[in-house]
């Protein structure tokens, strides 16, 4: 319309939040741990999106990464091992107005919580999920995790692990109704931030697999990952994760990939050649289970009782 700007109906929130508003306590992760980078990135995302701290929830399971909710000055639930997803799905079902983030680790998600994980993907509830994968159990001082590489020497595998690792990307891409699957690395904070931001913007189960460093228990792995730039390949697409030109230059290799191509995504995930960073797959307009869970919100207890009684009355003799 003449003289009217496109962003005309601009609703300004009551408050303006700064980084301090999202920070709580001192993060008790080891110095050099990748978790710090994710925390900083998520706090920045909250500030950028001006998320209301009282309308934001971080749900985690058990593990180093799962201490995350303690350091966010929002609501949080640090609860049951492997059960971050059911709790988060429950919250989102009954409180669709909340922004729900799930923080989980390789043990929490891929081992004890694998069952819940698979179904959460299929439910496609509107959550932002971050899987911190450091390929080791750090909190309990170095035991092998399902994602540990063959030969990983740990307290439970003193002669090196023997089973091939589980790939969270392949699993997620293999489950029906997957809607957003991305991979990033904590040592490229710009790319990680762009990825988490895109995940947050997506409606549905946005799964971000974060390759995360544990410099204490996996120092060699960290060294290899961060120094060998030949292994990493940046997925480039206008609909994918886009970073500034300067950041793009930090990648030695880049490859085109259309995020709507699920078969291509599965091939990338299965590829042993390189680790691809970027958006593997995004499917829009997929079914969201929480859309169905929210239909009778706002019904009071009295009303529910009355409804039940009315229903029972049908069977009265």
């Amino acid at each position: 319309m003449f003289g009217l700007k496109p962003d005309a109906a601009l609703e300004l929130p009551e408050n303006y939040y700064v980084l301090d508003d999202y920070e709580k306590g001192i993060a008790r992760w080891c110095d050099g741990c990748g978790d710090h980078a994710v925390l900083a990135s998520v706090q920045k995302l909250c500030r950028e999106e001006q998320l209301d701290p009282v309308k934001t929830v971080f749900v985690s399971g058990i593990g180093c990464s799962s201490r995350f909710p303690h350091y966010m000055n929002t609501y949080g639930f640090h609860g049951l091992h492997g059960r971050a997803f059911p709790v988060a799905c429950g919250i989102k079902h009954r409180r669709p107005d909340l922004d729900v983030f799930v923080i989980t680790g390789d043990g929490d998600c891929c081992s004890i919580g694998a069952g819940a994980w698979i179904h959460a993907i299929r439910y496609n509830v509107n959550l932002t999920v971050m899987l911190f994968n450091n390929e080791i159990y750090g909190l309990t001082k170095k035991q092998q995790s399902p994602t540990s590489r063959i030969g990983t020497v740990s307290n439970t595998t003193p002669r090196g692990s023997i089973l091939p690792p589980l790939d969270p990307m392949q699993v997620t891409l293999g489950v029906a109704n997957a809607s957003f699957v991305a991979q990033t690395a904590d040592w490229n904070p710009a790319h990680m931030h762009a990825t988490i931001k895109a995940a947050h913007a997506h409606k549905g189960f946005s799964f971000v697999h974060i390759l995360q460093r544990c410099p204490i228990f996996q120092p060699e792995l960290v060294n290899e990952l961060t120094s060998n730039r030949d292994n990493i390949c940046y997925l480039k697409d206008d609909n994918g994760i886009t970073v500034s030109e300067d950041i793009e230059k930090t990648f030695k290799h880049s490859a085109p990939h259309d995020p709507s191509d699920i078969n291509g995504a599965r091939q990338l995930a299965a590829s042993e050649e390189k680790i691809y960073l970027g958006l593997f797959y995004q499917g829009k307009n997929k079914e969201n289970y929480d859309d169905y869970g929210a239909h009778n919100l706002g019904v009071t207890v009295e009303e529910k009782t009355a409804m039940l009684n009315a229903e029972f009355d049908k069977y009265g003799i």
């Binding site: 669709p96 107005d97 929210a294 919100l297 706002g298 019904v299 009303e303 009355a306 409804m307 009684n309």
Partner: peptide, 19 residues
Amino acid sequence: IQKVIGTEDVPLISSDFTS
């Protein structure tokens, strides 16, 4: 059911939560 509970003015689905 609404006939039974007699609260026709109250909408069954509150708009508070739905975006």
